[in-house]
Write a protein that binds this DNA or RNA. Structure first.
Lengths: 300, 300
DNA sequence: TGCCGCGATAGAGGCAGGCTATTGTGAACG
DNA sequence: CGTTCACAATAGCCTGCCTCTATCGCGGCA
């Protein structure tokens, strides 16, 4: 039993005439006759009653024809599903994104993305780098936006933009009036960071030449940190995008003097993923839409 | 796109291994590889992501696979429909039957029929001969039980049994004590018949040598006629099966002397109908189950 | 009775789907 | 660090079937 036979079957049921059904199917009349007969032999029942001037489905034939229509509709839907996903960035795509980037990147990304690729069905997963990489290798994610470099096997990446860090301190803080500060000038005791697992925390610790004296804070979002700074509990480091969004009259942002006080955001995916063109298109759009606070890394 | 390709697709989705999927499908691994690749080319999308040790469906692949399962289920149902109808007297069958036979034949026919052919889905249509023949030629019926002979083109028939007629008269009627009566002895003025269109009426009129004086009765059922006879309004003719069922203490049944005072019941169907074996089986069962009042016509 | 419409059959050809054998490529292991 | 193993892809070939054109058979109709 083949889909072609079922197409012939339905055509004959509609046309009730071998010649017209064959014409409808763009085949010759003997071809259609033979295939219908073959289908009847295969099923072991008569599907049509051939009269002298008539071709009429048998009662079982009617049921078989109804089911055949059902099958053909399914095949058509299958083609539609594939067709809708054929073009670039269409159909389902699971994208991971780190929490220190998500709330500040998505507002200016989502609208252009929807405008450029309306058929894209984005499934966003916000979590820490390690979790995202795990999900990526487990095929739960197709790609992820996170801070480079990533240390994982079988991962390909494409850098997108650089984001400098700012010291966020209370407006009455001793360093608040400075044009720029060095990391060594910051009292590590007053530096508040995100809880463990956030790559931003790890990077901030790496930037501190002195060992960090933990103040006991364990915060899960930069917004919470901002409130803590505004209330005078201490300082923190904010990436450029977050700093531009988390504004507060009681907070001053001071650029850091160190050249490496920044992070590079990139798109990563499994090596050999068949959606490479999708990822290229996504990367291109992110680069194009990148707002002022960040520095776009030119495509290689 | 073929059903075979879809089978390979779901097998690979289930097994996640080309070799095992090929074994499951009873084909070689290269065959399955090629067909999967062909399907991907046809659909224009990647259905699986081939890793070094892994074969994982892409997100669109998952959807396509789900739809493929759906299509294959439909194809399987289609085979089941055909398979259920493959045996004799199984599946749907529309059977016409005339009103003067239906209430008296069905009681002893239906139970054995169900017992012998439990898969038969009988769709009974009770109407007059002309209507049944029309429905038959319009493919609304598959066969019909009615009085022979039938005068219609492209109709094949098989006689089943003969049914003698009885004069049904009030117990105090002058003819009620007779062993047998001739049609000529019956006062045509007191003879009540069914309304026009019933073959039994036509046959009764044909049996009367004298022209019938219409008493003005137009009854649609033999049961009504029985009540009229019991109330003394006149006499009527009842076929044997009806006479055996429509008993009443105030009614006497007298056999008719004429040899042709009987009707022959037969099964008729369109010439060339593919369900000939079904009809033969049905006819054989009716002959076997025929009760005493009728005389079975031997099969030719 | 001859023509016409329509479906079935015959025979030929070309493509597709199947096979075996082999290659390429990571991964595991001594 | 080379070898081997596992596994999918590729090559090349063959068979079967799907399709075609040509023709036949059969009723209906003029």
């Amino acid at each position: 039993m083949t889909l072609t036979e079922l197409r012939y079957l339905v055509a004959l049921a509609d046309q009730r005439h071998f010649g017209r059904a064959a014409e409808f199917c763009n085949v010759s009349q003997p071809t259609l006759s033979t295939q219908i007969r073959k289908l009847e032999d295969y099923l072991g029942i008569a599907l049509f009653e051939r009269g002298n001037r008539s071709v009429v489905p048998t009662p079982v034939g009617e049921r078989v024809i109804a089911e055949a229509r059902h099958v053909l509709n399914g095949a058509s839907r299958l083609r539609d599903i594939a067709g809708a996903a054929r073009s670039v960035l269409a159909g389902p795509l699971s994208l991971g994104i780190i929490p220190t980037l998500s709330p500040y990147l998505l507002p200016w990304l989502l609208s252009p993305l929807r405008a450029a690729f309306p058929a894209l069905e984005l499934n966003l997963v916000e979590d820490q780098t390690a979790v995202l990489l795990r999900a990526l290798s487990d095929y739960e994610l197709d790609a992820a936006l996170l801070a480079l470099p990533v240390d994982a096997p079988d991962i390909e990446q494409q850098p997108l933009f650089d984001e400098t860090f700012y010291l966020a301190c209370p407006a009455d803080h001793p360093l608040a009036h400075r044009d720029r500060v060095r990391m060594t000038e910051i009292e590590t005791a007053s530096l508040m960071l995100l809880s463990e697992g956030h790559c931003l925390r790890d990077q901030a610790i790496a930037l501190c030449s002195q060992p960090l004296i933990d103040p006991g804070f364990r915060t899960a979002s930069l917004t919470t940190l901002r409130h803590l700074v505004a209330a005078g509990y201490g300082c923190t480091l904010l990436p450029a995008l977050a700093g531009a969004a988390e504004t507060d009259a009681r907070i001053t942002l001071v650029p850091l003097a160190e050249n490496n006080a920044r992070r590079r955001i990139g798109l990563v995916w499994r090596r050999g993923s068949p959606r490479r063109t999708d990822f290229d298109a996504l990367a291109a759009l992110i680069r194009k839409q990148a707002p002022a606070p960040v520095t776009v890394v030119p495509a290689n």
